[in-house]
Design a protein around this nucleic acid. Structure first.
Lengths: 244, 244
DNA sequence: TGCGTTTATTTGTCTATACATATTATAGCC
DNA sequence: GGCTATAATATGTATAGACAAATAAACGCA
């Protein structure tokens, strides 16, 4: 059997190169959810390699949940972004309504401003930047449920300026429209001070669950949020089942 | 080229069969962490198939984090169980010591008993069962850090009876020795009552972070625990980065 | 038009072979 | 003993060729 010259490629493994290429296309949004990935025989030509090699790439991408493969139809970028089974980022509005309760929302404050030193620390960005800062309250059955205190990087999410957050909670809009790749949650408990107690309609000193979350897309900060829930009213649930 | 008769195996794909076999051996504990998985050429013989097939099995098991592969040495069942990037189950002792602080531990209560109705609810088991119930305190730099209130199913973890929990915290032992497949966390905040305040050395009414966790192995309940942390002293951090 | 049948295409799995690469074990040397 | 060069071995990557299974699309018929 004749061995091709292409065999001993110098740099990284060909398999890795192809995988990185495709993953970049998917993660960057160049190939949006639902987009059909080239067929195996097309990728064979593109990278001049054997079918087994591109098959392995696509199979592992499918394992990782980035694509869905269908015989005779092709491979497609999958719709539900990664975030399968971890500490999910909930859409509070949807959560409340799912429980059959009346959801209420009130925008308390909103400003677009040049990032202050503190803003830059919270978002973890270096130079100057424009941010949208907002504070709002979520209610379930008329009962205050959470105070949301959020910063959004305008550079990372330009569309945010076109949104009317007096009606749609930023939480809900972001969950539905802005994809992310990394998230970090910091969870702790504190006693409500007078201000928070007033806004949440609880006793000063009552225990509150504080969730601070930051999200990035490919390393670029998107948003940072602090959610304060009355301890009595909120349970955070994180369930993990591996190879679901 | 001669085609072997073995080709068209009737049931599931051979690859799946082998993968299930190995996964069962690992998950059941028959192959404990550190155990050397048979070499590719041994598995070839066992299942009378080609090396590419067993190679694919082992490679995907490695991707899934179940085994670690080392050239010339072989493949080994990996120590840190699945739980790669989710809300991890921390070994409190190790966490404290990693921060360079002095760790202290005190067993407050331990009993082996037939499961009460309440025990069965907490663990989520039906019939009669024996459980180990224990309560202990973790300290960092002499300062109480957490109250751990735990139930362990003796049936699921028989070895638990041989352990001396007056020295080793159950948390630490379980994290290191008992593999799990599913976990659920329920996180909330509460005000310390007098008992808890006394045990944690904080003011009654101070906010506490309460973490309730339950774990299963292939659907069988292993343990249920409630951890109460002084809100002031504890941050739970969950970071998620997909294809690390 | 509507429905069942055939066909073509794509992915899924498997084999046999080849060579690359990392690393452990061994043999040899000072 | 301790160091280094060498050989042995297990995994890593890649190829070409086969056949299986699923199914979308084309076809044919009533």
């Amino acid at each position: 059997m004749r061995l091709e010259a292409k065999r001993g490629v110098p740099g990284a493994a060909l398999y890795q190169r192809i995988r990185n290429d495709l993953e970049t296309k998917i993660m960057s949004g160049a190939w949006p959810p639902g987009h059909r990935v080239p067929f195996e025989h097309e990728l064979m030509e593109t990278y001049s390699c054997s079918r087994m090699t591109v098959n392995k790439v696509l199979s592992t991408l499918a394992d990782a949940g980035l694509v869905v493969r269908r015989r005779r139809a092709g491979s497609f970028v999958s719709r539900p972004r990664v975030q399968s089974a971890i500490l999910q980022i909930p859409d509070l509005k949807a959560e409340i309504e799912k429980r059959g309760e009346r959801y209420g929302y009130r925008l308390l404050d909103l400003q677009k401003r040049n990032a202050t030193a503190q803003d830059r620390i919270r978002l973890g960005i270096g130079g100057r930047a424009t941010v949208l800062a907002l504070r709002c309250r979520h209610e379930a059955e008329e009962q205050p449920f959470a105070i949301e205190d959020r910063l959004i990087s305008v550079q990372a999410v330009p569309d945010v300026l076109k949104q009317d957050f007096s009606i749609t909670p930023p939480n809900t809009w972001l969950v539905g429209h802005v994809p992310w790749t990394e998230a970090e949650h910091r969870i702790t408990a504190c006693n409500a001070d007078n201000d928070v107690a007033a806004e949440l309609g609880i006793e000063p000193g009552a225990a509150c669950l504080v969730i601070e979350r930051q999200t990035w897309r490919n390393g670029e900060p998107i948003t940072a949020v602090r959610l304060i829930h009355p301890g009595r009213l909120y349970d955070l649930i994180a369930r993990f089942t591996p190879t679901a």
